[in-house]
Amino acid sequence: MHRFANPGRFLRLSNVILPWIAVLAAGLIAVGLYLALFVSPADYQQGESVRIMYVHVPSAWMAMFIYTVIAAASASSLIWRHPLADLVAKASSPIGACFTFLALVTGSLWGKPMWGTWWVWDARLTSVLVLFFLYLGHMALMGAFDSATRGARAAAILALVGFVNVPIIKFSVEWWSTLHQPASVLRLDGPSIHPSMLWPLLAMGLGFKLYYLALMLVRVKSELIAARLNARAATAAQLS
């Protein structure tokens, strides 16, 4: 079992599927945006600003989803020492942080017309903010070591510890926010959501997921190539 056991197979596979995923992601996001901006109705209470939801909600989904992917990759890196798992975690972390940031920014933009202020210490916003900090810590730890292997190993342990803590943090933040203020007034999670709103939301959600997958594959690929070049340079230096 060598550290770079099967990058060749991975690269061949990713070269085949990458174009399909990329095209599909672009198509879904285009369709989703069209439905969201032109077809779906404006909300009777929130007006046009409800359309922020079609970016905000999928981003928030992605924030959680990517953290789960990182935790799963970290577990398989620590338990089975799978050679690609570290690279998947490393490639995913900045993407996840960006989605989390996007969720925060769109949430804040949405909050301005609804709550009259850019930021409220609402339970959801606050726990997404904490998740953003977790991403930042993961990225910082990953890059803090001179040896990439050590950075990956340490970040993997942190990701698992963080993953165990995410539900606890979310729960305690919700507890805290109900203590300090009544639950926020306007929530659109009614019992059912109208299909004209559901379809664009689903299209955007799936589009975001595929977009993440494509981006992640590209990043893993470039990490692999960089590792190969580094190894080449190191051996060349030793040979001369």
């Binding site: 730890l141 070591f145 942190l158």
Partner: peptide, 25 residues
């Protein structure tokens, strides 16, 4: 986790503070 990291002292708060929020609450 930060042993052997560059500037571990600055990193520790970034890693630990989010995890401490429930205790604070």
């Amino acid at each position: 986790l930060t042993l052997g990291a560059r500037r571990g002292g600055v990193l520790i708060p970034l890693l630990v503070l989010p995890l401490n929020i429930p205790i604070l609450i």
